[in-house]
Design a protein around this nucleic acid. Structure first.
Length: 594
RNA sequence: CGGGGCGUGGCUCAGCCUGGUAGAGCGCUCGGUUCGGGACCGAGAGGUCGGAGGUUCGAAUCCUCUCGCCCCGACCA
């Protein structure tokens, strides 16, 4: 297609609003424009890319028998009242009234609507399982939209829902979708990882997130370098470490060390000197203590104290899951100080009443740790958790770190990545089917709630994530499968009759061969300007036709990613582009997944 | 929601402190010269300075309110 006819305005300067690479490049490349905070218009280039990804999603899901549907974006409040989420969901849910004063919301997700659809349509186990999906604009009124398409308020999402007669069948489908997602992201041509994640408050039994790996990702991921174990750092199991050899056990000594003003672990370790430790002690021999305020399922409240080694960090998600709390937050510092009787930095687990103490397993069997003495400016030196903390339990409550030994295979070590969450598979169970009466009759004629799974892919976020992973100083470097166009044909002398003739002929030949070509035939632009635009737009191949080359009977083909340049005769172009495509696709297959 | 910052042609920004009736670069239009990494000359179009109110002879500039946007945090998954 002719570039002069494309609705496109590239920008030389980065718009002020754009704060992440994908947003900057998409705005500069004229792909998106912001209409309001977190709300964007998609221009032809962006939409082409989005549509290509959607098509990959469709094809892979349909291989597994998923059926595409389309549900309304505007949903009646009644359904949300049935599921209980009208009250539960916060301000993220955009609510409004119609002319008759009835309440509606803009759907942030579609469990209610799809459950309603299925309960009215499916009645027998013979109709199950059923797996439906849609690709649609969603709206979540995020507190603070940011990062362009990565965390917008309005975004395109693929959401799918499955319904099953048995738990086992739901699990089977879960893994089928897991495999489908792996195929989808592999076809996309990005580096990604399926990641074990915390199922959070929704309370499903297990869940995986799919992350596109990118330095700018919001999530930290640990992945074993020897086996497949990959997980969100919130969930990563930490290996139990052998307790350090800290000598023969001391008595717990309140006054052993006065530590005025010493709060940080490093200073504490350095300050703990005596005849046996003239140079202080290792940080691993200190300990940290945090008090949490937990709310249980029955609404009772309790205090939880967490102890980890000084060189480790507490993982609050693990603590929360361990005590089975529905909600947990750090005990406010003033209240904690009042409770323990010591300033922040000198609190410790010893002697506290009405607190459930959980000690990280790495301290199990160890002695002579330091801890706050619950007296301002003093630390204990000689903590033996088993002896000094009656009633305390040991558990894995620390944040696993890069380099820790893998708990699954025991052979490898964790490697850290940053990831952008672009998909999630989730086993929902009967949360919605039960509250909304989505039931079926089994072989015995017994009425049972359907077992549900849900499966999401953030379509627009994925496109942005692909850019976060694939760009250079000059602009976007599109993965072939979602490039808006595959070949950027630059006519460097649009005034020249012969040059233009060749250019148009090549455009026709390439399109005939099935390639998508954007033909920059704009007049009055210097070659340099066209090069800059082409780099910015970042289509995989750039074909340059100019009088200089044509004098010698050649045109030039350049690979956007490798910058490799070949000169060829016009009649070789189609074959050469075909070969280049094959080469690029092969290298993508290598990079995708792991 | 707490803290910070910003709203001036399509984009990036200057002007504001110290009031005197709006500028630059890029982009756009026309003409000409150029033409292999964002060319040059000339001539143009385009802004109720986010909005409302106030102070003043006079407000982009000072004051009050308001709306929008951005960043950090909290929140969310």
């Amino acid at each position: 297609m002719k570039q002069s006819k494309l609705l496109l305005q590239t920008l030389r300067e980065t718009p002020k609003d754009a704060d992440v690479v994908s947003q900057q490049l998409m705005m500069r490349a004229g792909m998106i424009q912001k209409q309001a905070a977190g709300i964007y218009s998609y221009f032809p280039l962006a939409l082409r890319s989005i549509r290509k990804f959607e098509q990959i999603v469709r094809e892979e899901l349909e291989k597994d028998g998923c059926q595409e549907i389309l549900m309304p974006a505007v949903q009646p409040a009644e359904l949300w009242e049935e599921s209980g989420r009208w009250k539960f969901y916060g301000k993220e849910l955009l609510r409004f009234r119609d002319r008759k004063d009835a309440w509606f919301c803009l759907g942030p997700t579609h469990e209610e609507v799809v459950t309603d659809m299925v309960r009215r349509t499916v009645r027998s186990y013979k109709q199950l399982p059923m797996n439906v999906f849609q690709i649609q604009s969603k709206f979540r009124d995020e507190i603070r939209p940011r990062f362009g398409l990565m965390r917008g308020r309005e975004f395109i999402m693929k959401d799918g829902y499955s319904f099953h007669a048995s738990d086992a069948d739901c699990d089977r489908e879960y893994w089928a979708m897991f495999e489908a997602y792996k195929r989808i992201f592999a076809r996309l041509g990005v580096k990604f990882r399926p990641v074990e994640a915390d199922s959070g408050a929704i309370g499903g039994s297990f869940t995986h997130e799919f992350h596109v790996l990118a330095g700018s990702g919001e999530d930290a991921i640990l992945s074993c370098d020897a086996c497949d174990y990959t997980s969100n750092i919130e969930k990563t199991e930490a290996p139990k470490l052998a307790p350090g050899d800290h000598g023969a056990a001391f008595a717990l000594t309140r006054d052993h060390f006065a530590t005025p003003g010493i709060v940080s672990q490093e200073l504490q370790a350095a300050a703990m000197k005596d005849a046996d430790h003239p140079g202080g002690m290792p940080i691993a021999q200190t300990s940290k203590f945090f008090l949490y305020h937990a709310t249980m399922a029955d609404q009772t409240q309790k205090l939880v104290g967490a102890v980890v080694r000084g060189d480790h960090d507490v993982n609050p998600v693990k603590v929360k899951n361990f005590v089975g709390a529905t909600d947990m937050e750090l005990f406010p510092i003033e209240e904690a100080e009042a409770f323990t009787g010591a300033k922040s930095g000198f609190m410790g687990p010893v002697g506290l009443k009405d607190v459930q103490i959980i000690v990280d397993q790495s301290l199990e069997g160890g002695v002579n740790y330091t801890c706050g003495a619950n007296k301002t400016d003093f630390h204990h030196f000689g903590l033996d958790p088993a002896r000094d903390l009656p009633g305390a339990v040991f558990a894995d409550i620390r944040i696993a770190a890069e380099g820790d030994a893998c708990t699954r295979c025991g052979k490898g070590h964790y490697q850290a990545f940053r990831g952008i969450e672009v998909g999630q598979v989730f086993k929902l169970g009967i949360k919605y089917s039960q509250s909304m009466g989505c039931t079926f009759l089994d072989e015995q004629g017994k009425e049972l709630p359907m077992i549900m799974g849900c499966y999401g892919i953030g379509v627009t976020r994925t496109v942005a994530a692909a850019i976060e992973q694939n760009y250079d100083a000059d602009g976007i470097v599109w993965p072939w499968p979602i490039a808006p166009f595959q070949v950027h044909l630059l006519n460097l002398d649009p005034g020249g009759e012969e040059v233009s003739k060749v250019a148009f002929q090549l455009e026709a030949e390439l399109e005939q061969a099935g390639f998508e070509v954007l033909h920059d035939e704009r007049e009055g632009l210097s070659p340099g300007a066209k090069f800059k635009d082409a780099d910015l737009l970042g289509f995989p191949l750039r074909l340059m036709v100019g009088s200089k080359g044509l004098k010698d009977g050649v045109v030039e083909l350049r690979d956007r990613r490798t910058k490799e340049l070949v000169k060829l005769r016009p009649e070789e172009v189609v074959a050469s582009v075909t070969a280049a495509k094959a080469r690029i696709m092969a290298s993508l297959a290598e990079a995708g997944g792991r």
